[in-house]
Design a protein around this nucleic acid. Sequence first.
RNA 1: GCGCCCUUAGCUCAAUUGGUUAGAGCAACUGACUCUUAAUCAGUAGGUUCUCGGUUCGAUUCCGAGAGGGCGCACCA
Length: 441
Amino acid sequence: MAGRIVAWRAHGKTVFAHVSDSAGRLQLYFRKDQLGDETFGLLDHFDLGDIIGVAGPLFRTRTGETTVRVESVELLAKSLRPLPFGKEETVDGETVRHSGFSDPEQRYRQRYADLAVHPEVRSLFIARSKMVTSIRSFLDGLDYLEVETPVLQPLYGGAAARPFETHHNALDMPLFLRIADELYLKRLVVGGFERVYEIGHDFRNEGIDRTHNPEFTMLEFYEAYADYETMMGRVESLMVSVSSSLRSLPIVGEKIPVLAPPFKRIEWVPSLNSAAGADVMSCTDAELREISRRVGVQHPEVLSRPKLIDEIFQALVESKLKNPTFVIDYPVELSPLAKPKRGNPALTERFELFANGKEMANAFSELNDPVDQRARLEGQATLKAAGDLEASGVDEDYLRAMEYGMPPMGGVGIGLDRLLMYMTDTVNIRDVILFPTMRPE
RNA sequence: GCGCCCUUAGCUCAAUUGGUUAGAGCAACUGACUCUUAAUCAGUAGGUUCUCGGUUCGAUUCCGAGAGGGCGCACCA
């Protein structure tokens, strides 16, 4: 077997060592009389961090640990730079680590070293991979088609965010890194791929903090002839399927929440009114500011009315949703991209899923009326011309696609970094991204 | 952006009211040791104390500015 030396205990003519590979740690036992003077002498040159290959029979030591009695050994790669291994001991069944590698910045910058010395970090990223596998198999099982759409886009849209801009030399034209997949996926539904999804990176040229990284992984899926009710069921099943697939993993498995469908559903307006003790939508602006002050919204005087209402909702309702809960039927003012609710045009067919006070998913019955869509995009273009850096322009090609006839459909976006954070009880997004965006050293 | 905290050896941390040559464990190097497991024991080497400036006989320590980082809040999906 082969692996990296992670512990070394030399006792003169005998040596005990542990090597680590992707399957775990294994103890090795070297004896001078077994290996011969020459081979045993080579062991002097081994360091922690070296990668070696050994062969020999397994046995159990006096303390019962399975161990390789090494008959031959070979150095496969030399470690010139000491890996910052801590030492581990087991106290009452708990692994206690001493003098490890703990500076968060260095761990992110040198993820290779972080992974090499921290098995629990490896297991978190294994969980990430399993999560994605589980999502694919869930959607594939529903006859969804996985597709790839452009990362480099001549126009950006599908969300409100500032983009990264780049330039194509041969075409001498600006290109933007996508902020969302949405508009291309919906073009594909027009083309007849009635169930499509994409898992990929979106890029937003905004701040970095513990829940934001400039590039992050987004899952979006669209289903023709479905509405937001259907999509709520999809999201619920997907969450349950992911959590059960992760729960069987070692180390991280015990952190994964047990999800019991159906998730709670609350309607946006009634839940806000009961939390605020007032009919919020009919409040005057002055009354809204008063409520804002009471619930701790900062600078209510500079916020627009829809923004103010949204802030109050976040403070009173969203932040208190611990168990997964669908918030449904958003006011139309807050949801410019969603289809009006059948039977109540003041609301939209939209839901968001919250857990631990954080948004997990955002979904709509998608707007498929090209006339309405054009009016909304032109409104955005006006804002953009007026200097709103987050507003998008008019995507004529997208409108053309919609004008050919876009089936009604439900669409969902789920930020996978945040989903993994929720599943594994991780607070910082950098902990679930292998190489988070960093300032240069 | 605001507040609080932090920055000393490869890693984890000390250093008395401001006082001599900045210490310890691990890792590295040398030596002893044939069932150890944070192995043990003896020794060696390793430092621009984040940077710049100030106060002082003397600064890791006090003051100012800057850089980087962590946490919280705000903003932002």
